[in-house]
């Protein structure tokens, strides 16, 4: 039982973190480098899930995912089954819920790149996309890694959204945190303890990784000075 909950959790968190890392590049690029005044609105929507109660978000997502709604019916036709209470639905919900955690560190590293470095690339004749690909992204690798770890850790620990959108189906949408809750309710103390220990392990590994990344980031910035 714990194996299936573990594999669902790891698969969900890995996919969420990886997809978000890819998405964070254009999103953070737009927030940091676009001169459009829409970026403020975009950034607010992006960080909305930070302050929204998970139950509210879960409810809203359920409504949006339901086959009665337009986006839900489109997705259902695409996938061949309705989104709620499926792994695909759970993944989509996690992507939305963990988005700010993966994007903010990347945006932060984009902001830390000195303007004169970007200007230098432009002076050498680099078009904007080349500057992004060859200068901005390679210089933001610690931020990307931090975003991945945060997205992963945050998805591992999520509870409310997973509960509402996933429906706690063993082997498909039951994650470790849901299993810990279930086991506790049904008085299976050992099962709950194992899940909690695994969750603790994930959190501590993430913390160590984040600290290592931060130190690395500091080092690379210290060596920037010529």
């Amino acid at each position: 039982m714990i194996h299936s909950a573990l594999s669902v959790t790891v698969a969900l968190s890995f996919l969420t973190a990886t997809i978000l890392s890819v998405l964070s590049l254009p999103l953070a690029g737009w927030i940091v480098f676009s001169r459009s005044s829409w970026t403020t609105l975009g950034e607010s929507i992006l960080t909305l899930t930070l302050v929204l109660p998970p139950a509210v978000l879960g409810y809203l997502l359920l409504v949006a995912f339901s086959p009665d709604s337009l986006p839900g019916s489109l997705m259902a036709r695409l996938l061949g089954h309705p989104l709620p209470f499926s792994f695909a639905g759970l993944l989509l919900a996690s992507l939305i819920y963990s988005l700010p955690f993966a994007v903010q560190p990347v945006a932060q590293s984009f902001r830390q790149i000195p303007l004169r470095t970007l200007e230098m690339a432009r002076i050498l004749g680099a078009p904007p996309f080349t500057v992004f690909r060859k200068i901005v992204v390679p210089m933001s690798l610690p931020g990307l890694a931090t975003g991945w770890v945060l997205g992963f850790a945050h998805t591992v620990g999520e509870f409310g959204v997973v509960m509402m959108v996933g429906g706690n189906i063993p082997g498909e949408t039951r994650t470790l945190s849901l299993k810990a809750y279930d086991d506790l309710l049904s008085m299976k103390a050992h099962g709950a303890r194992d899940s909690v220990l695994l969750l603790l392990l994930f959190s501590s590994v993430s913390l160590v990784a984040l600290n290592l990344l931060r130190r690395k980031g500091v080092d690379s910035h210290a060596s920037d000075a010529p």
């Binding site: 004169r116 470095t117 230098m120 690339a121 002076i123 200068i135 210089m139 690379s220 060596s223 000075a225």
Partner: peptide, 12 residues
């Protein structure tokens, strides 16, 4: 072509 003052090379 412009060479700014005290330019640093791309650190990465």
């Amino acid at each position: 072509a412009y060479l700014p003052q005290g330019v640093s090379l791309f650190p990465h």
